[in-house]
Amino acid sequence: MQYKLVINGKTLKGETTTKAVDAETAEKAFKQYANDNGVDGVWTYDDATKTFTVTE
């Protein structure tokens, strides 16, 4: 399945996608991506759209 990440950071904004077997695996990949880019915020997930959002 394909999952999307929407980033609403202080210095980084945008979107990225990943393919993963489940939401938990996608979340780990997205959190690593956010961490690598210095984004630390509040996470939400919408199962209907398979979209994670992180807001600083």
Rank of each mutant, 00 (worst) to 15 (best):
V21F: 12
T11W: 14
V39M: 06
K31Y: 05
Q32L: 10
A20N: 03
G9W: 07
V54S: 01
E24A: 12
T53N: 05
K50F: 10
F30R: 00
V42K: 08
G14L: 15
V21T: 12
Y33L: 06
D47G: 08
D47M: 09
T11A: 10
L5I: 03
W43M: 04
D22L: 04
V21S: 10
A20G: 04
T53I: 05
E27M: 13
T44P: 00
G41Y: 03
A34V: 10
K31E: 03
T51K: 03
T49G: 04
E56I: 09
F30Y: 02
G14E: 12
Y33A: 03
G41F: 03
D22K: 04
K10Y: 10
D36F: 09
A34W: 03
D47S: 12
E27Q: 11
D22P: 01
K19S: 13
A26I: 02
G38F: 07
G14I: 15
G38V: 04
E56M: 07
N8M: 13
G41W: 07
D40M: 14
Q2C: 14
V54Y: 02
G9L: 15
A34K: 01
F30S: 00
I7Q: 02
A20F: 09
E24Y: 13
T11G: 08
W43R: 00
T53H: 06
L12E: 06
V6M: 07
A26K: 00
D40F: 15
A20P: 02
V42P: 04
K31I: 08
Q2R: 11
K10N: 10
L5M: 05
G41Q: 01
D40P: 04
W43H: 00
A26V: 03
F30K: 00
K31H: 09
G41R: 01
F30G: 00
T51Q: 04
D46R: 03
K4E: 03
A23Y: 13
T17W: 15
V21R: 11
V39Q: 03
Y3S: 01
K10V: 13
T16W: 15
E15C: 14
K50W: 06
T55Y: 09
L12C: 13
K19T: 15
V39G: 02
N8V: 14
E15S: 13
D46T: 05
E24W: 12
E15L: 10
W43Y: 02
T44R: 06
L5E: 01
Y33T: 03
Q32Y: 05
K10G: 10
V39Y: 06
D22R: 04
W43L: 03
A20I: 03
T11F: 14
K28F: 09
G41A: 02
V21E: 11
A26N: 00
